[in-house]
């Protein structure tokens, strides 16, 4: 009995394993081209599931990062070809030269800098305090014994625990597996505030029809950068174009379009 059952099930496992190998193979990028310049196609990897930075609309990638890199390409003379790559594999692929560029709301960290190069920072990834508009909480100092939601493992969780240690939060810091769960609990009135990445929370505010608001921006010093393989000759051209974009007001335009408010300050 057990043997015949196993005999029937085993081929299914083999099939599933083979399929997953094929899918994993498809996930890999193309063979990357050379450097930039001259209006040529450049392969860009991005984890296109992170609104408002990169997400799909009518089958096309859109978002803050996409607009920014398209603009940089226009000025530096290249045309980005976007590939949707899972975030966890994106640094490995870049360091193996599978793509020329990564733009994916990626925080610049010393660990990542060991394997890849970054452009100048293009986004201050601050934290924010998100509350219901009628909740009566105006800042972190007014949290008191409110229950504060965070996503596990995020900068928001670290910040919330800092506030708890400082005595600004005397209530519970409740961790959720995904930020969507935390948003759901906030909308249900089961928690009273959320500390999370500003742009992601702002996106939730924009879709809330006035029910939610961000009452405080909490600076953390984290910044996003555009990433390249080590010693890419594109980096200089991208930095030059990025500096122009920050200078002439284009940056502020893109920021307002996707984040829904003016930037507190432009990253340097």
């Amino acid at each position: 009995m057990t043997k015949s059952l196993f005999g029937r099930v085993l081929p299914l496992f083999v099939l599933a394993a083979a399929l997953s190998l094929m899918v994993a193979g498809c996930g890999g990028g193309s063979g990357g081209g050379g450097g930039g310049g001259g209006g040529e196609d450049v392969s860009v990897a991005s984890d296109i599931a992170y609104p408002p930075f990169e997400f799909e609309k009518d089958g096309e990638p859109v978002g803050f990062d996409i607009d920014l890199l398209d603009e940089i390409g226009k000025r530096a003379g290249f045309k980005p070809e976007y590939k949707n790559v899972g975030f966890d594999g994106i640094i490995g692929g870049l360091s193996n030269n599978q793509y020329d560029v990564v733009i994916s709301a990626m925080t610049i960290t010393p660990e990542r800098k060991k394997r890849i190069d970054f452009s100048d920072p293009y986004f201050n990834a601050d934290q924010s305090l998100l509350v219901p508009s009628d909740g009566g909480i105006g800042s972190v100092d007014e949290l008191g014994d409110a229950t504060v939601g965070v996503q596990i493992g995020t900068t928001g969780e670290i910040k919330a625990n800092e506030f708890k240690d400082q005595g600004k939060i005397t209530g519970e810091v409740r961790t959720f597996d995904t930020i969507e769960d935390a948003f759901a609990a906030l909308n249900n009135g089961q928690i009273e505030a959320i500390i999370n990445d500003l742009p992601v929370s702002q996106d939730e505010v924009n879709g809330s029809g006035g029910k939610l608001e961000i009452v405080q921006v909490i600076a953390t010093g984290e910044q996003y950068g555009i990433a390249f393989p080590k010693d890419s000759d594109m980096r200089q051209d991208v930095n030059k174009a990025l500096a122009e974009i920050k200078e002439d007001g284009t940056y502020e335009e893109i920021y307002k379009k996707w984040i829904g408010r003016a930037p507190e300050e432009i990253p340097e």
Partner: peptide, 9 residues
């Protein structure tokens, strides 16, 4: 399309 192992060691 390059082949990629689903697990890296």
């Amino acid at each position: 399309m390059p082949f990629e192992w689903p697990v890296e060691f």
